[in-house]
Amino acid sequence: MTALLGATTDTQPQQATPPASHPVGRGWSRHNWLAGLAGWFWLAVVLIPLYWIVITSFKAQSDYYQQNAFAPPGDPTLANYRLVLENDFVRYFFNSVLVAVGTTVPTVIFSLMAAYAIVRGAHSRWLRRVQGLFLMGLAIPLQAAIIPIYLVIIKLGLYDSLPAIAIPSIAFAIPLAVLVLSNFLRDVPRDLFESMRLDGATEWTMLWRLAFPLTRPAMVTVAVYTGVTVWNGFLLPLVLTQSPTERTMPLAVWSFQGQFQVNVPAVLASVVLSTVPIVVLYTIGRRQLVSGLSEGFSK
């Protein structure tokens, strides 16, 4: 993956619109039945399970076993949601919020600083090595490092706490964040920096007054991506925490399944509740995220 991403470093993520050529525009794809069929077919594949999750979460447990699985609830109920909320869901929710914010904010700030240093100090051999190290970091699988992370967290006395989840999450989010942000910063016209410098601005001022506002779209991409990854993270909470008070959302959903057993509607209500914040985030940051990701990989 290192090698692969190394080849994509020269992309221009701020290019919100595709190049002027519309190769698959009119003519070629207008009557492309095969692709059209695939498109609608995939929509069905995606939506059927999602539809099932949502309708089932509003069914009474007794109805779930009697009704047609795909019929909308004859007698919609919020009992499942109530049951989930009564089982400490709010605490797990806030744990996840704390971990997500506690990971995303430092990741974005530290990565912006590092990306700024890498772009502005590109002549420095030391900074080029740092950049190479971050690129290599993209290839480190979290699973492979989990045992020593567990050891380090124990030694630091952080075991079974929320920072135990957040700190390694930051470390593993930094490489991609630095890559995306430095690609973006590289395209800021250098005259802007030059004129600010002539006005007597320090690098620190330029970072916050110039780089920060200009890279906002890339920061949204990075923040949403990091936030979703951490929100959904399972391995770190599984290994690094144990008490229910430190439980995050994915672990909660997993343990609800053990706890509620055959009460499938309640389990699915917890799935819905755990996903809603991400869907909201996706709705807000979708354009940035999608164009950032597609520009970043498609060259």
């Binding site: 430092p106 530290f110 990565s111 600083m113 590092a114 700024y116 240093a117 890498i118 502005r120 100090g121 420095s124 030391w126 900074l127 740092v130 190290l133 971050f134 970091g137 480190i140 492979a144 490092a145 989990i146 045992i147 020593p148 992370i149 050891l151 380090v152 700190i167 390694p168 930051i170 470390a171 593993f172 930094i174 490489p175 630095v178 690098e203 970072l207």
Partner: peptide, 22 residues
Amino acid sequence: VAWMALPALAIFLGFAVLPLLG
């Protein structure tokens, strides 16, 4: 500017590179 890379580098080394070597 080089020092600005340090916070990211420190966390990355401590919780990703070091564990990989570890």
